[in-house]
Design a protein around this nucleic acid. Structure first.
Lengths: 247, 247
DNA sequence: CGAGCACTTGATCGCTTTCAATAGCTGTGG
DNA sequence: CCACAGCTATTGAAAGCGATCAAGTGCTCG
């Protein structure tokens, strides 16, 4: 595979995901060990990082950019089953095959570890195994929350739910002033949104337009979203709005 | 809470889920430690085991029976997000609140551990933490597989997928003679099936009738299902049938 | 300027939902 | 023993939502 490989940020101490990734709880000594088996790898938007069914010889963390986990049926129907953001972990210690396609939706940088040494280290380093369990439990919660979205919500509610999730993440990266309003870029095409939500791209487009007409969101271009009233968006998503100001 | 508590099977060595549950990899010494903090608890079909949002002071494994994890919206729409079978683990070390309702759908026996001592032991016992990670990764895979079912499959395919899953589980408990045919009791009402599949109970009923008319399944009473041709059922579910004998 | 791509919008179709009536079964009480 | 309530499940008819098919817009890049 002709995939570009770069050494980009060799210093773990300065890593942007240092305190959120699988290495979050590692001490200086453990980081040094990890450093010995790690390497960085870049992918361009649109590239396939891992093919479903392929043997995986590495695991790793997303350092920057966005990737997706997708599942595809024989007839071409596809469902996105995960959205990988910076600090998220890719790969399954103890398993050889990849269960899903992993696709870069933006340019992306990953911090990879060779699988065998990583597994060995995990067995000897409770900090890592523990953090990985914690992260996996969070992912399981997220997957189950998404099952409610897929199974029971209307198209309008699905779109609003997705905007809430992306907006909330962006707010957590952009500290300061996340009061009633949000503003962010969508890292996904309409088709990718459709694959995440179990809809067609036409329905996504229609519902985005409807939310715009109703004043729930504003659009600057196709991908930049402004949410004037976060509580209202959460109401539309069918979630508890916490502040019950909106009638 | 007036929940019956019994000491039922104090011997871990004879426990039916001994080699599949969170304690699967424990040695005799570790089992003895677990034994000191464990207790059995029974629930009747229909009882709520844990309410969403409640503080959980225990974690545990399903020993026998079936339970469900369900999520409910304010307006009453509900989605089942997990099916708990014998050996499955309930609870989240490190978290206080329960994220979902846990309901007994049949009479059920659970092997519970007080949460604080269990967490302490997990920190000191790599065997337990490791097994729990492995089980959590499996649950995550199952949740993501279900996302494809909820997001992209038709009602007919959804029903067939559910029958496949339940049948496969039953086959693994009933060794011998699982060739082309399967036979099992549904542990779920039509309504519970609907909540799992993101459908209405009427649609579930109609599709069950349709599958019966098409000869994909036979019914003895409302709950007993016979699958004369497992490959055919998998075809209807939209999964790879592996054996390509079925036209 | 035209090709290609992402996106929007319109018209129609069809699957699933909704509303409604009925059947089958179990347990209770006169 | 039968009547009846309560529950689960089935079936029918009609409505609605999202999918499908189709056309057109706006943008970027060669």
């Amino acid at each position: 595979m002709n995939v570009p490989r770069h050494k980009i940020a060799p210093q773990c101490a300065e890593c942007p995901i240092r305190h959120k990734a699988v290495c979050a709880r590692c001490d200086a000594d453990e980081l040094e060990q990890l450093d010995r088996i790690k390497y960085y790898r870049s992918f361009e938007a649109g590239q396939t990082i891992i093919w479903s069914g392929d043997k995986m010889d590495f695991v790793g963390s997303v350092v920057s950019g966005v990737a997706t986990l997708t599942q595809t049926m024989e007839d071409g129907r596809t469902q996105m089953v995960g959205l990988l953001l910076p600090s998220d972990f890719v790969g399954r210690p103890g398993r050889d095959g990849a269960p899903y396609d992993v696709l870069a939706t933006t340019d992306i940088v990953m911090c990879c570890f060779r699988k065998i040494p990583f597994e060995k280290m995990m067995n000897e380093t409770p900090h890592i195994a523990h953090r990985l369990l914690e992260m996996t439990l969070d992912e399981l919660d997220a997957a189950r929350e998404w099952m409610l979205v897929l199974g029971r919500k209307t198209a309008r509610e699905k779109i609003a739910s997705l905007l809430c999730i992306i907006g909330r993440r962006d707010a957590s990266l952009t500290p300061g002033g996340h009061g009633d309003t949000m503003e962010f870029d969508l890292p996904l095409t309409r088709e990718a949104m459709a694959d995440y939500l179990g809809l067609t791209l036409e329905t996504v487009s229609r519902q985005m337009s409807a939310l715009r007409k109703d004043g729930v969101i504003e659009l600057r271009g196709k991908r930049h979203v402004i949410v004037p009233d976060t509580g209202r968006l959460m109401d539309v998503a069918g979630d508890d709005s916490d502040g019950g100001l909106y009638g």
